[in-house]
């Protein structure tokens, strides 16, 4: 199986996915369900990771640049920049690829091996559209909110840890996070987030949809979904950063 074959089949699957839905209202209620399942249910892990990573970034920044030449606000500034530009959109998306991507591939994969996708096809339902489109729309809508929450909690976690451990003074940190703030950076981060959400859902759905065999293959698809989503996210990150920031 060569890579061109997979790319071709992936594009064809996308074309089917975006074909006209049979019942818009049904698709929409599925989308809302998926937003809950794939988005809201990821809130806990996103919040936890963000707060702790923010804390670690702050403490590490401080201990690495502890020099009288460097101004006190730099720690807050560095925490903000690394959280908004990279940590929240990219690292959290990689984590979501692990959680959401494997979930999508396993769900669609087991529907495939249990002939449930055949059952949809037989009814004349566009199975790709019905199963995949709501997931794409749901993650593209909800992930930006997750990432914004992550940005906030990352910076908040940094402030809390910094102040609690005494490595920074609250006023300096707050000055740092306000200094030279460019709203465009948030826009850039959210564009990345939306693209990554698309990658996670479509790559994972592709892996699930073309699962052949039994439960063992569902496991393999699920692992592949995470690995390929991660690789694609990293590639897209590079391309988007060049296109949007340079």
């Amino acid at each position: 199986m060569n890579i061109l074959y997979h790319i071709g089949r992936y594009v064809l699957l996308l074309r089917e996915t975006f074909a006209r839905p049979e019942r818009l209202s049904l698709y929409w209620s599925r989308t809302v369900e998926e937003m809950d399942l794939l988005g809201v249910k990821s809130l806990g892990i996103v919040a936890l990771l963000s707060a702790f990573m923010g804390a670690v970034i702050t403490i590490q920044t401080k201990t690495n640049i502890d020099s009288p030449l460097i101004q006190a606000w730099v720690v807050g500034f560095a925490t903000r920049q690394s959280t908004i530009l990279e940590f929240s959109p990219t690292v959290i998306s990689l984590i979501l690829a692990g959680k959401v991507g494997s979930n999508i591939a396993a769900e669609i994969g087991s529907m495939r091996v249990k002939e449930q996708i055949d059952a949809l096809d037989i009814m004349g339902v566009n199975s790709a559209g019905y199963l995949i489109l709501p997931k794409i729309v749901a993650t593209m809508l909800i992930n930006p909110f997750l990432i914004m929450i992550s940005m906030f909690l990352g910076i908040f976690g940094g402030w809390l840890a910094g102040v609690q451990t005494g490595v920074v003074v609250s006023d300096d940190f707050i000055m740092g996070i306000q200094l030279g703030f460019k709203p465009y950076h948030v826009v850039y981060a959210l564009i990345k987030t939306v693209v990554f959400a698309f990658i996670i859902t479509t790559v994972s759905a592709y892996q699930g949809y073309y699962t052949r065999g039994g439960t063992r293959e569902v496991g393999i698809s699920s692992t592949r979904a995470v690995v390929y989503s991660d690789v694609m996210i990293l590639l897209a990150n590079l391309v988007l950063t060049q296109a949007l920031l340079l």
């Binding site: 249990k114 449930q116 055949d118 037989i122 004349g124």
Partner: peptide, 17 residues
Amino acid sequence: GIRQRIGMLFQGSALFD
């Protein structure tokens, strides 16, 4: 159109979980 007029029972039932 044809498929909407087909009913099929699968060997493994294939109910939606």
